[in-house]
Design a protein around this nucleic acid. Structure first.
Ligand code: FES
Ligand code: FES
Lengths: 147, 147
DNA sequence: TATGGTTGTAATTAAAATGGTTACAGGTAA
DNA sequence: TTACCTGTAACCATTTTAATTACAACCATA
């Protein structure tokens, strides 16, 4: 399996809010851009809000970034949108037979390794900020314009 | 989402074959141990076979390791059992709006980052072999016996 | 205060992935 | 021949996921 697209959409949303910082980023506006349903956007924005990455208020249109661009890492988003619950990226086979030497120990044997692997992944995400993404998009757009 | 339990079961199977190397590791035997269905085991063993990690032959009972214990890494298993197809651990939001500055660039902006993250995860897995797991289980079992 | 527009959220539906199961063809060995 | 095994395809049940609908709560303003 693969990691929920909520993560990509989350990054997406934050980046869009930045580019549209002079305007009003309502759920409808964002939805049109992301090409999906406003309610879905509100759901994800709600998660970002709970993680204190954006500010939104009931009844008032528009979401704003709650932190500086350079202070929001992809790991923040990753955790905010709950791609993995209970921090368990890997599924461990649950019902192994306790009668069996391997069965009763395999879980404890691989768990720390998987945790380490997961941590390595998260560390990479923590090294990239939304600012990097924004800058990257600006660069890409310029390159396209030159052609 | 989280990574298929096939990965854990794969490690499971290889480890069990090692511990049972004097005996015959038929799909039924393994299934009883892993606590699941023989057909499911055959399916996963088939994947391990395709990756040249085990040797099995139609009609002949039992699977054997095709390589030395220390030459089988968890990454080998990870790839063998196809936890991620097309090497895409992350889902990128597909339908973003090309009319939008962010939409038409976001994908290319985050893809390399995600690839890097994925690579970091895989690197950890490549540093652990089945031999490590086997040894770990022996140690754990001894510790339990001491109590 | 009435109105129009917005967020927040619960409930529902639809689609996809996963794990598990059954069934059987084809192979091996005694 | 017989008994047993692997390899697969087909199928089903369950769970997840995304998407959608619907509506209550809220705010700003005329
Ligand atoms: S229960 Fe997994 S090998 Fe015994
Ligand atoms: S922000 Fe994703 S399509 Fe514009």
């Amino acid at each position: 399996m693969s990691i929920s697209s909520r993560f990509a959409v989350g990054v997406h949303i934050l980046t869009l809010i930045e580019f549209n910082k002079e305007g009003v980023s309502s759920s409808e506006y964002i939805a049109a851009s992301v090409n999906t349903n406003p309610a879905l956007i509100r759901k994800i924005v709600g998660m970002l809000k709970k993680a204190k990455l954006v500010e939104v208020h009931p009844g008032i249109a528009g979401a704003k970034l709650a932190k500086n661009l350079s202070e929001i890492t992809l790991l923040d988003v990753y955790k905010a949108v709950d791609v993995v619950q209970d921090n368990e990226l890997f599924n461990i086979h649950e019902n192994s037979n306790p009668q069996c030497l391997v069965g009763r120990n395999i879980q404890d044997a691989i768990a720390p390794i998987l945790a380490t692997a997961q941590l390595a992944l998260e560390k990479v995400l923590s090294g990239v900020t939304i600012e990097d993404i924004v800058q990257d998009i600006i660069n890409k757009e310029e390159q396209n314009r030159e052609r």
